[in-house]
Amino acid sequence: MTKPGTNGKGIVNALTIDVEDYFQVSALAPHFPKDVWNDTPCRVEKNVHRILEMLHEHGATGTFFTLGWIAERYPKLVRQIVAEGHELASHGYGHQRASDQTPEAFLADITLAKVVLEDISGCLVQGYRAPSFSVGASNPWAHDCIETAGYAYSSSVYPVKHDHYGVPDAPRFTYPVGQGLLEIPITTVRRFGRNWPVGGGGYFRLLPYSLSAWGIDKVNHEDRKPAIFYFHPWEIDPGQPVVREASAKTRFRHYVNLERTEARLNRLLQDFAWGRMDEVFLQAAKQSV
């Protein structure tokens, strides 16, 4: 496969990393309540350092949607992300699903996260992604809160059908959700009357690499749009503790093919051109006005 960034068509996709530790994943929340987070050994710093090395090796940049809780504990890591040319964005403060909060609590969480990230990094934070893509039909007020908090874009909607998230009938590509806010959904391909996920996460680990690459290539060349891909630092960490008390379904989803993810990501970085969300989407939006 020819890298789209060098095939004469100039398509650069957006690479995104949701910076959270393994024990902060929504599916493992019953086993790691917030009052034990401070006493749980973190692995995120080492994993993010490895990701930064990978991106440097491939000459790629990306957007790091970072928890405020993580930023407060690893401020040097946050500054390193920015110093190496990547975009710093918000994943909220405490990794609580937007759909599980009141509008007031949600606004307070995402406002605090923005303040923390900007104070530590010294740069403007324009993007937000809700934990577990938890913005949808049940909480239409969430976009109003995101705009009120001062963000320029959200990447909180996944237009697929899933048992924990998803808005299958949402637009597949960037759309306005307020006076000054854009929603930038995770990438899907449209086949057989439905949207199919090709934007990363557990699907990238579970399914063959060729399916993700095929889908991204289809979006680039059939839809003539940049794709968005996401993953987590814990997904390149097969040595993380196994939570055996979790359900079989949760264990499968969380641990499947962790040992293969880093090699697949290296292949993805080689096969496609990657950049930051703000440069891929916000600059394009401004140019189209």
Rank of each mutant, 00 (worst) to 15 (best):
1 M>K: 15
1 M>I: 13
5 G>S: 14
5 G>W: 12
7 N>I: 00
8 G>W: 05
10 G>E: 09
10 G>M: 13
10 G>I: 12
16 T>W: 09
18 D>C: 09
21 D>C: 01
22 Y>V: 03
22 Y>L: 08
23 F>Y: 09
25 V>D: 10
25 V>Y: 09
29 A>D: 10
30 P>D: 04
33 P>G: 07
33 P>R: 12
34 K>F: 11
34 K>C: 12
35 D>M: 07
36 V>F: 03
36 V>M: 06
48 V>T: 04
50 R>D: 02
51 I>M: 12
54 M>W: 06
55 L>P: 02
59 G>F: 10
63 T>Q: 01
65 F>H: 02
66 T>D: 09
68 G>L: 08
68 G>W: 07
69 W>F: 15
71 A>L: 07
72 E>N: 07
73 R>I: 05
74 Y>V: 02
74 Y>E: 10
75 P>K: 00
78 V>W: 00
86 H>M: 05
88 L>Q: 12
88 L>D: 04
90 S>D: 07
91 H>A: 05
92 G>P: 06
92 G>I: 05
94 G>H: 14
95 H>C: 06
99 S>K: 12
100 D>P: 07
102 T>E: 06
103 P>V: 11
103 P>N: 10
106 F>C: 00
107 L>R: 14
115 V>N: 11
117 L>M: 05
117 L>G: 10
123 C>L: 11
124 L>I: 13
124 L>Q: 15
125 V>F: 04
125 V>T: 00
126 Q>M: 12
126 Q>C: 05
127 G>K: 05
127 G>F: 10
136 G>T: 08
137 A>T: 09
139 N>Q: 12
145 C>V: 04
145 C>K: 14
148 T>D: 10
148 T>G: 02
148 T>H: 11
149 A>E: 01
152 A>P: 00
155 S>D: 13
156 S>D: 12
158 Y>N: 00
158 Y>D: 05
158 Y>S: 04
159 P>W: 00
159 P>T: 00
160 V>P: 10
161 K>H: 13
162 H>Q: 01
164 H>Q: 15
164 H>I: 12
166 G>F: 02
167 V>W: 10
170 A>P: 06
174 T>V: 14
176 P>V: 07
177 V>H: 08
180 G>L: 01
183 E>L: 03
183 E>Q: 01
183 E>C: 02
185 P>R: 03
188 T>C: 11
191 R>N: 08
193 G>W: 08
195 N>I: 05
196 W>K: 00
196 W>A: 07
197 P>T: 03
201 G>R: 09
203 Y>S: 04
206 L>R: 15
209 Y>R: 10
213 A>I: 04
214 W>S: 07
219 V>M: 02
222 E>K: 14
225 K>W: 02
225 K>R: 15
238 P>D: 09
241 P>C: 02
245 E>M: 08
246 A>V: 04
247 S>L: 05
248 A>N: 06
248 A>R: 13
249 K>H: 06
249 K>R: 15
252 F>E: 04
257 N>P: 04
258 L>Q: 11
258 L>C: 02
264 R>K: 13
265 L>K: 08
265 L>V: 11
269 L>T: 08
270 Q>H: 15
270 Q>V: 05
273 A>M: 13
273 A>Y: 09
278 D>Q: 09
282 L>G: 08
284 A>W: 08
286 K>D: 14
287 Q>A: 15
287 Q>C: 03
288 S>T: 15
288 S>E: 15
289 V>R: 15
